[in-house]
Simulated scan of single mutants.
Amino acid sequence: MARGTMRRTADGQRTGTGGRARSGRRAAIGLAAALCLGTVDAGAPAAAQSLHVQRVDIIDPNGFEKPLVASTILVPMGWRSAGGVVWNPNTPCGGAGYNFDWQAGAPDGSSGVQILPMRQWMWDSAGYSAMSSCPSARIRRVADFLAALVQEIRPGARILDFRPRPDISKDYEQLNQTTPMPMGEIRSWVEAGEVLIAYGQNGVDMRESVSALVLFSLNRMQGMAGMPGMDFYSGVSFPAFASRAPNGQLDFRMTEMIRKSITPAPEWSARIAEHHRKIAGINAKGAQDRSRIIAQTGEDIRQMQAESWRRQQDSSDRIARETSEAIRGVETYADPNSATGTVELDNTYNQAWRLNDGTYVLTDDASFNPNATFGMDGTQLGVAQ
């Protein structure tokens, strides 16, 4: 497969290779990806231009009366997965009681990806947050959150690079709001970013990318009667995504393909929506107002995710679908064998195939032959109309 390896040279510059863009609208997207990931090695062998992936279910085993598929994700063939949705009714900060904690990796453990649990925190200028059950942290930027997260999951790791990810936060701009209040204002905003880190693991020099989307809130109260004004901050992260490999082997193109393939399952999404509504109703009857706000925020986020997913699946609304696709870097292909009749795959590859065993191949090889490469027949997928 064409690798998008981002490496640091002695002078701190990035070097690497990425993938070729498609024509038309997708060429522009491919160009943007090339600016981040580099350019493809035109001399790479054909086998290195194909990525064979399988669809894996992320399961919620305990949240409802039976296990449900919460999301699906595409990972390389042969990778093993573990984890899923984890429930804990005693989560701090008045949370919704569940979280994501899932990972998949190569059989030898040399490389893999993780979906990291959501996190919540608060901080205020008066010091009241120190007395709360919610973690207290003065984190007001996504870069600060990622720095703290890295030290939590990889103690001692070095941050080599940071970049904003407006492509990730674009779908959540509705959360950027400012509401004037009689004694101040309430403001919320979203930020997304990604870091590249380095650390040692069992004697191996590792590289890992970690990306995250965070919703920040500020309640600013003006001072009065000789009392100073106060700022109350809170933050909640969406499940972060991490991808690791030995130095020189971290494939950024594959990392993005996996991240963008995450698709919420409709039944689980509907059940979680009802769960959020119940929490909001209980809190509205007398629980702490802050818990109610967090529960409602979680439901707002879930509704936007669900609506985004519904728009993506609705091939009749092609303009809306392609706008969403362009933002997220995916293409919708017609796949009669899938449950919905379509499948979303990374749009930086020239071709997409479904093999007879139900797996997929993304490739830049114009002469790709699934039988010659993988020993089985397959069907090249066309773009959904």
Score class of each variant (00 low, 15 high):
269 S>Y: 12
303 Q>N: 07
264 P>K: 05
383 V>Y: 04
309 W>G: 00
125 S>N: 01
63 G>S: 13
152 E>W: 09
67 P>T: 12
294 I>F: 11
188 S>A: 10
292 R>D: 09
360 Y>S: 04
243 S>Y: 03
220 R>G: 06
363 T>E: 03
285 K>W: 10
164 P>M: 05
24 G>T: 03
373 T>D: 08
54 Q>P: 05
322 E>Y: 04
103 Q>C: 10
342 T>H: 13
186 I>F: 10
338 S>T: 15
9 T>E: 10
53 V>M: 02
176 N>T: 01
114 Q>T: 09
30 G>V: 02
52 H>Y: 14
1 M>R: 02
112 G>L: 01
25 R>H: 08
54 Q>T: 11
197 I>G: 00
33 A>W: 05
67 P>V: 13
24 G>M: 11
92 P>A: 13
376 M>W: 07
55 R>E: 07
236 V>G: 10
253 R>Y: 03
245 A>C: 14
253 R>M: 07
247 N>E: 14
265 A>P: 11
296 Q>S: 14
163 R>P: 03
275 H>C: 09
202 N>D: 12
270 A>K: 13
154 R>L: 03
354 R>Y: 08
88 N>L: 12
36 C>Q: 10
337 N>Q: 14
186 I>N: 09
384 A>P: 07
45 P>E: 10
115 I>Q: 01
81 S>P: 11
357 D>P: 06
366 A>S: 15
156 G>D: 02
26 R>A: 09
307 E>L: 15
232 F>D: 00
99 N>P: 02
354 R>E: 06
352 A>Y: 15
306 A>F: 00
69 V>N: 12
283 N>F: 12
380 Q>I: 15
350 N>I: 11
272 I>M: 02
214 V>M: 07
373 T>F: 06
196 L>G: 03
276 H>V: 02
29 I>A: 10
47 A>S: 08
85 V>H: 01
199 Y>M: 08
109 G>D: 08
224 M>W: 07
276 H>N: 07
103 Q>I: 05
40 V>W: 13
133 S>I: 13
101 D>S: 12
38 G>Y: 04
351 Q>S: 12
256 E>C: 08
360 Y>P: 01
132 S>C: 05
167 D>L: 04
381 L>Y: 04
183 M>R: 14
1 M>T: 07
9 T>F: 10
236 V>Y: 02
119 R>F: 14
146 L>Y: 00
